[in-house]
Write a protein that binds this DNA or RNA. Structure first.
Length: 740
DNA sequence: TAGTTTTAAGTTTTT
DNA sequence: CTTAAAACTA
């Protein structure tokens, strides 16, 4: 039989197919959860290339997370290989790409570095002296929101964001300072391109010629500035297609405007609307449970979503005593089902509201040897040692970067105090010369001069390395540099010659940290970038736009997923456990009105990730601020339709035998028969099996005396060799079971 | 100025 | 419980 459309459109339903084949006018696709919108977008990209003869390079598709972008390009390529040449980015990464090429029009050097929120606070703190940290954060947040709404410091409407009189002035000074430095913040990645496009018609024309198709996914989470960017990129002949669902809007806290969806038909005249209302993902009982909560929201378009699948088993409400029992429940449930071969590890996801909640699961899962992946935790980046190294790298590409300079110049201590640092920065601002030049010529005390010269030498050596010179004196060092890979050559030199490596190595031995390991991980992460200025810039841009890149790439495919609710957008799992359903955790206690509605939508997003089974857990107590705090069940558990819910809010009366994390009381030492003086004095014993939250299982291999007391050496199953001073025992190292 | 000790404060969510 | 800022000492 002859089909009137290509075979790869066959799996689509009629509405999905209509969306793929739609051409001409602007298109708004209102796509409910699990209605196959990713499939529609990817198929549409393939169809445009294959059937319409479209050049892949003229297609721009925008998503909101890097994870979604990667998945989308992969799925499109499965249908049509050439889809790999289409431009698929997040809004912010598109903005960065745009500014690297066109920023010079607005006076921006192509070598800019992107400031994250902490950097913004740091810069702002030098503008707002004598201001408390929380206040600075508040103003930093206001500036960021203002940019989301495309409001500059001179905009009359600025009062809506922050009505304080001094806000306008602070914003203005911040912008001036940032311009002097030559870097940008997240908001600039959207706002600046719009400004350039508006003031330079020839640039706009170039972009309109380049992109004839623009698609935007998760349009409900676009902010006002992003709407303006889209509008500028769309010429009269551009085909524009946006996909969204107002019920899944979960980023209003950072400026997302659902109005963008509501007003799309007005802003893009003649727009067609296609609704995808058939849900293919979840059982109808899961869908019903999810909808019954979001139904309580007042401000919504309202939609009918039909489940394709049958009823399935009802979502199960599980009441537990505390977060340790919650973790045990999850572990048992998952383990049993995998043992019975009902599921594999990767069929399961554990969802929580805040990143901090992952640690209980991580500890228990590694103890029970359940493989897991934590998605998108920011931890790696927040680490002191990583920030130190990155500050050095940022300063290497931009010697006006006072934020990076401040952090790097006296770490480890080189005898350069705040007075000196302040003097250098002030002189640089007034004279216009960069911080390195000022550092070279400024008259200083002998002590500060010596330290500063070390720092200058370090930066000069780094620059020389990026320029392809090998600068080191000793043969062994030269050898080491030659054998290094890519950018890790330069980074390795920096962290060693700066003294950071030595500094943290000492710290690790005293406290049992693994900061050196993290720096090592950083080296590993940069090894594939070329050892040039361009390579370094590319690396810095990538990690600032996608923090998950810095994490250890241990993506074992067969593993349970631990993930925040926000990060689950666009994903699906056979079985989902939503945890921490308590007032104060989810929803957060202080949420009411429109913010509470956003939490409800978050519940909806989380619940609709589940294909076959959904569990909702709540605890009577939770360990917070060093105490067990009593909790009451989440409002959402009262709101969810009881006719599709298994279980009641009763359990959890059972007292936990031992809180997790400390199976033995502190005083408990099963090996008090130490046979030599050192073992007795240290409280440890060679052969003792131990468990460490970060490193897993291991055994004591050696105890020796040192200036600071007995030093215990541990060999871990993951191959790592660690040492720690015995007086810090019990903090991170836990004795378990028998000797080897 | 550097390093240590004390005290206070604080948990969203992410590009 | 952790982290950050402030106060204190060498």
């Amino acid at each position: 039989m002859q089909l009137d459309y290509p075979s790869y459109l066959e799996p689509l339903n009629s509405e999905q197919r209509r969306a793929v084949l739609h051409t001409g006018k602007p298109l708004l696709i209102l796509a409910g959860a699990g209605s196959g919108k990713t499939r529609v977008i990817t198929t549409k990209i393939a169809w445009l290339i294959r059937e319409q003869g479209m050049d892949p390079r003229s297609i721009l598709a925008v998503t909101f997370t890097n994870k979604a972008a990667k998945e989308m390009i992969q799925r499109a390529r499965q249908i049509e290989e050439r889809a790999g040449d289409a431009m698929l980015r997040t809004f912010h990464s598109f903005g960065a790409w745009f500014l690297r090429r066109n920023g010079s029009i607005a006076g921006l050097d192509s070598g800019f570095v992107i400031y994250d929120d902490d950097d913004v606070v740091s810069l702002l703190s030098s503008i707002m002296e004598n201001t408390s940290r929380p206040d600075i954060r508040f103003y930093a947040n206001s500036i960021s929101r203002a940019k989301d709404y495309f409001l500059g410091p001179d905009d009359p409407g600025l009062g809506i964001i922050n009505h304080h009189k001094k806000f306008r002035d602070i914003y203005k000074r911040y912008e001036e300072r940032l311009a002097q430095i030559g870097n940008v913040d997240f908001g600039d990645l959207i706002k600046k391109p719009v400004e350039i496009l508006r003031s330079h018609p020839e640039v706009t024309q170039r972009f309109r010629d380049r992109f004839s198709v623009i698609m935007v996914d998760e349009y409900q989470d676009a902010n006002v500035a992003q709407f303006h960017l889209l509008k500028e990129l769309c010429g009269p002949s551009t085909y524009v297609c946006v996909v969204g669902d107002d019920d899944q809007s979960i980023y209003r806290f950072r400026g997302a405007e659902v109005k963008n969806i509501l007003e799309f038909p007005d802003r893009f005249s003649g727009a067609d609307i296609i609704r995808l209302e058939q849900n293919y993902r979840s059982t109808s009982s899961i869908l019903k449970a999810a909808s019954s909560v979001v139904d309580k929201n007042k401000g919504r378009l309202g939609k009918t979503l039909f489940a394709e699948k049958g009823d399935g088993s009802n979502p199960e409400l599980v009441s537990l005593f505390n977060q340790d029992e919650e973790a045990s429940f999850c572990a048992d449930k998952i383990e049993n089902s995998v043992k019975k071969k009902e599921t594999t590890w990767s069929d399961w996801a554990i969802l929580y509201r805040t990143n901090a909640q992952s640690s209980v699961f991580e500890t228990l899962f590694s103890r029970r040897r359940i493989p897991y992946n934590v998605v998108g935790s920011l931890e790696f980046y927040k680490r002191e040692e990583i920030k130190d190294a990155l500050a050095l790298l940022s300063f290497l590409v931009n010697q006006r970067d006072e934020v990076a300079f401040r952090r790097a110049v006296n770490k480890p201590a080189r005898g350069i105090g705040i007075v000196t640092v302040h003097k250098i920065i002030e002189t640089s601002i007034t004279s216009g010369e960069n911080l390195l030049e000022i550092s070279r010529k400024l008259k200083l005390s002998q002590k500060a001069r010596t330290g500063l010269n070390e720092f200058i030498k370090l930066i000069e050596d780094g620059q020389a390395l990026l320029d392809g010179q090998i600068i080191h004196q000793t043969e062994s060092k030269k050898q080491k540099l030659k054998s290094g890979k890519g950018l890790s050559v330069c980074v390795d030199m920096l962290i060693n010659n700066s003294g950071l490596a030595k500094h943290y190595k000492m710290q690790d031995e005293i406290s049992g940290n693994s900061k050196i390991d993290n720096l090592q991980q950083l080296l590993n992460n940069v090894k594939d970038y070329p050892n040039t200025r361009e390579g370094l810039l590319e690396f810095l841009e990538n990690i600032n736009l996608d923090r998950t890149l810095a994490e250890e790439q241990k993506d074992a495919k067969e593993a349970v997923t631990l993930i925040t609710l926000h990060n689950t957008k666009g994903l699906e799992f056979k079985r989902v456990i939503m945890t921490g359903l308590e007032q104060g955790t989810f929803p957060r206690e202080d949420k009411k009105g429109s913010e509470l509605e956003e939490e409800r939508r978050l519940f909806y997003v989380g619940a609709t990730r589940a294909m076959d089974e959904l569990y909702l857990t709540t605890c009577k107590q939770r360990f917070m601020w060093g105490r067990y705090e009593n909790r009451t069940p989440s409002l959402f558990l009262l709101e969810v339709d009881k006719s599709v819910l298994k279980g009641k809010l009763d359990g959890g009366s059972r007292q936990a035998a031992f809180p997790m994390g400390r199976q033995f009381p502190k005083s408990f030492n099963p090996f008090n028969l130490a046979n030599n003086e050192l073992e007795e004095r240290s409280g440890w014993r060679v052969g003792q099996r131990i468990f460490h939250d970060n490193h897993g299982y291991g055994a004591v291999t050696e105890i020796k005396d040192s200036d600071d007391g007995p030093l215990v050496r541990v060999r871990f199953e993951n191959g790592h060799d660690k040492r720690f001073l015995s007086e810090f025992q019990g903090r991170a190292y836990e004795k378990i079971g028998d000797d080897y």
